[in-house]
């Protein structure tokens, strides 16, 4: 299936860009008119992925976060990429309540939220190279007719 629209975004790893990224994703997805709950799901999942890139990928330092969004007639695929530290043990990182940064009062719920709010979450990571989080969500409220 080919996407009906696509957007690529790059921004510096500043925490104030978390809100920017999720608002961009929501605005882009709005083109196919999902309901408010589905839109909120996308916003929250993007917020989690971008926050992870900033806190864990770049450890609050300087870096570039990339976000690619592909829109389908009734679904979206969002990929958040950092070229930071990478994750040693992806399975452990995806465990609910696990955090590598307890001193920062992180809840360790980031991946759990992404998995709950999106249909599919794929994590590809290499230590020293970075992390890619690919998320897919189908919007049940949107018809299957081409846009």
């Amino acid at each position: 299936m080919n996407p009906i629209n696509e957007v690529k975004l790059e921004f510096v790893s500043k925490s104030c860009n978390e809100a920017f990224a999720r608002v961009v994703a929501a605005a882009f997805v709005s083109q196919i008119d999902p309901n408010l709950e589905e839109l909120a799901d996308v916003k929250t999942a993007v917020s989690e992925a971008v926050t992870n890139a900033i806190i864990h990928g770049y450890e609050n330092g300087n870096g570039i976060v990339k976000m690619n969004c592909k829109l389908y007639t009734n679904a979206v695929e969002i990929t958040v990429i950092d070229e930071g530290k990478g994750i040693e043990d992806i399975e452990q990182a995806r465990q609910p309540m696990y955090t590598s940064k307890p001193e920062m009062e992180r809840s360790g719920m980031g991946f759990t939220v992404m998995e709950s709010f999106m249909d599919e979450v794929e994590v590809i990571s290499e230590v020293g190279k970075g992390t890619t989080v690919k998320m897919y969500k189908e919007f049940k409220s949107v018809g299957n007719q081409p846009g």
């Binding site: 999720r22 909120a40 916003k43 929250t44 917020s47 989690e48 926050t51 920062m104 009062e105 992180r106 809840s107 719920m109 980031g110 759990t112 939220v113």
Partner: peptide, 13 residues
């Protein structure tokens, strides 16, 4: 009007 899992961290703390 918006909260992600960072909010849970704040509450637990």
């Amino acid at each position: 009007n918006f909260m992600d899992s960072s909010g849970i961290g704040v509450i637990i703390g």
